[in-house]
């Protein structure tokens, strides 16, 4: 599903190149649950941003579903966002002016899903995450864990094939974090959704099927975990 070849990312200032990523080459198949790990400033988030097409690599090729996306035009990229990619953020990034229901609805509106279909999908998600009673609340009326659940529900609404999560549990207490990780695992196993997450926590990484260890912009280890 994802094919990275020789991805490099650097910023040049005063003639000196500061590398963030070097020679990153890897393949991620449909249905994998990958955790990107490494110390602060290693380039984890940059890699995830490149995977999410939020940043462009300076060099190298990136194929997403057999399509070279490094030179993708805006229109095509938006199409990918609408149909294939769901984002989950550390700071949740729910839209404050929208209720829970409306936040989940937003991607469906962009995807131009019909009204009845929309209502049933949202109802499904609310039901699945036990949020029915909270659907008319605004994000600031929810706890962090609940906000992240809404964030995940929103990412799932468009029925993406891949979820990109940047430290999804970074702002949460451990009990809530565990809940989110179990949810990810379930989504990965039962629904076959590819998940790529950036995490600091060894424990969270264990929920996945593969770990990419990055240090100083270079992939040091690529460990495949066998299911327990």
């Amino acid at each position: 599903m994802i094919e990275l070849k020789n991805i490099e990312k650097y910023y040049s200032s005063k003639g000196i190149k500061h590398y963030v990523l070097r020679h990153v080459t890897t393949t991620i198949k449909q249905g994998e649950f990958v955790s990107i790990m490494g110390p602060s400033g290693a380039g984890k988030s940059t890699l995830l941003n490149i995977l999410g097409m939020l940043e462009e690599p300076t060099y190298g090729t990136y194929e997403f579903m057999e399509e070279d996306v490094t030179r993708l035009n805006e229109r095509k990229r938006i199409e990918l966002y609408r149909n294939h990619i769901g984002f989950v953020f550390q700071a949740y990034h729910l839209i404050d002016e929208m209720t829970v229901y409306e936040n989940i609805e937003a991607p469906l509106l962009y995807k131009k899903v019909g009204g009845a279909e929309r209502a049933s999908r949202i109802a499904d998600l609310l039901d699945r995450f036990n949020m029915v009673a909270k659907k008319d609340l605004f994000p600031n009326q929810l706890s962090g864990g609940q906000q992240q659940l809404v964030g995940i529900a929103r990412a799932l609404a468009a029925q993406p094939s891949i979820i990109l999560a940047d430290e999804p549990t970074g702002n949460l207490q451990s009990a809530q974090a565990e809940e989110i990780m179990q949810l990810f695992q379930k989504l990965n196993k039962e629904d076959g959704i590819t998940i790529i997450q950036v995490t600091h926590s060894e424990k969270n990484a264990q929920y996945g099927s593969r770990i990419l260890n990055i240090a100083d912009g270079v992939v040091k280890d690529d460990i495949t975990l066998t299911a327990v």
Binding site: R75, I78, Y81, N83, F87, I95, D96, P107, R154, A158
Partner: peptide, 16 residues
């Protein structure tokens, strides 16, 4: 700004 960023990754175009 956040709203704009989120909407963009949810698939909103600039025109919208």
């Amino acid at each position: 700004a956040k709203e704009v960023g989120v909407k963009k990754v949810l698939g909103s175009s600039k025109g919208l």
